[in-house]
Nucleic acid binder design. Structure first.
Lengths: 261, 261
DNA sequence: TTATGGATATCGACC
DNA sequence: GGTCGATGTCCATAA
């Protein structure tokens, strides 16, 4: 089976043939073209004539990139349905999505180059260093928080959201931990403050559940760093802070030798 | 000046020359290659050998796309600094960011095809149908909320955030409006509940300011639709709901003829 | 299918 | 440079 095919300066008909083949053969289409883009769905948008990079993936993902920005200027998510046709000597690409109802239409006047490609790729990204990893690490090694700390619940539901980790210190005081995998802002502190209110005002069920005598309730923000404003509010509210980095370790043993900054 | 250049099945040195030229000339680089990707920064990731699509933009944006998904599997945002070199017969692409400190490294063993392109594009996206448009519309035509409604402030600051629109109904009762440009969830209702608490408990300054006699305070959620759970909570809390679509109209007079679904 | 919350979120506005 | 909020957020996960 053909892995790829390149077209340079193709006419509209040749371009259409390639696009059609990409859609039928589940290949990735890449086009550099002079085009105009319309979108209607959750919002409405228009991008007037100009040269852009278009990518259409076999899962239905559709991207239109301009020369700047990381994000595509227009797009459709996976599972969108693509069609193509020629209308008045222009190549039309359409991507349609059922729910929510959305449509993207690209009108192409000139294709500078286009490619058909089938990628052999059996790998998935391995990623480490986010909030879940941090929670895993703390549940596994609670003493890193402080000597005698014992987690009792994870993702504990309250009226104002989920508490990342609940636990007791060595004195038996209830501890409410809020985790942030990067620098914590003032919102993280407010979050803890709400949880504290929940427990202090009305939430005594859990205290009984864990046999707590309700000696004290400690709020603890766990993050690699904390912002200036957040620090102030934290001190005001008597909430504590513990500096912890999210663990940046991949599951596999493969060595990463990139840390020579 | 050259608009574009295409290479098919280039060797590593030819590939390097093209990449280098793209970086120097501020062109867009597109590559289809067999590669491996490492990332270290806010998190840590590794993507083992496979065929992917790489795009490098003149603003420093760096994207690595697999065959599936809308989002790139690895990336760097604009203003990242790119470099390239050959090492042990492999082409290395590196993208470095200062703050936060982040590095992306792509090791390329085989380039199937690559392109250099300079896009002529003087257009910006026109977009309509989001929250700001909705606010504009309501401030301009307050009666669409209800007969006699008078907005008195926009983006009114409270301890728990900004109230989208404050106003009075024809009886002089204070109204708190929360706008959502799409289906409102339970969080939108909770948001209003917090604002209501702010006013009922301690925020009398504004009431004096607008000369309100504090007859009643009405919370009103304005959105095109509302979720099941949100509806329940809303009824419980005595908050009201008004169905309003965000205005989908572009500023320019250009006609959009896409609405023939 | 819908609801919920995290993300290497990105991006723009404001300070 | 930060801080904050919106996004056509996307995305995985759970219900």
């Amino acid at each position: 089976m053909m892995k790829y095919k390149l077209l340079e300066d193709p006419n509209i008909e040749k371009s259409y043939d390639l696009v059609d083949k990409c859609i039928r053969k589940k290949a990735v289409l890449n086009i550099f073209a002079y085009c105009k883009v319309l979108y209607e769905g959750r919002a409405l948008s228009q991008l007037d004539w100009g040269e852009r990079f278009i990518m259409l993936k076999p899962d239905g993902s559709f991207l239109v990139h301009q020369e700047r920005k990381l994000d595509p200027v227009n797009w459709q998510p996976p599972k969108s349905r693509s069609r193509a046709w020629i209308k008045e000597d222009k190549l039309i690409l359409e991507s349609y999505r059922r729910s929510p109802k959305e449509k993207l239409e690209v009108e192409i006047e000139k294709v500078h180059f286009a490619s058909f490609a089938v990628a052999e790729d059996y790998q998935e990204l391995e990623l480490a260093g986010y909030e879940k990893d941090m929670g895993d690490m703390i549940m596994k090694h609670p003493s890193m928080i402080e000597s005698g700390f014992t987690p009792t619940a994870r993702e504990y539901s309250t009226e104002h959201g989920f508490i990342d980790i609940l636990g007791k210190d060595k004195e038996g005081n209830l501890m409410i931990l809020e985790l942030k995998c990067r620098k914590a802002g003032v919102n993280a502190v407010k979050q803890i403050r709400r949880y504290l209110q929940d427990f202090e005002e009305r939430d005594n069920d859990y205290l009984k559940e864990i046999g707590s005598e309700k000696k004290k309730i400690r709020g603890l923000l766990v993050a690699p760093d904390i912002g200036e404003d957040a620090k102030e509010l934290l001190d005001e509210e008597g909430i504590e802070f513990k500096s912890v980095e999210a663990p940046k370790k991949l599951k596999s043993d493969k060595k990463i030798t990139l840390d020579i900054f």
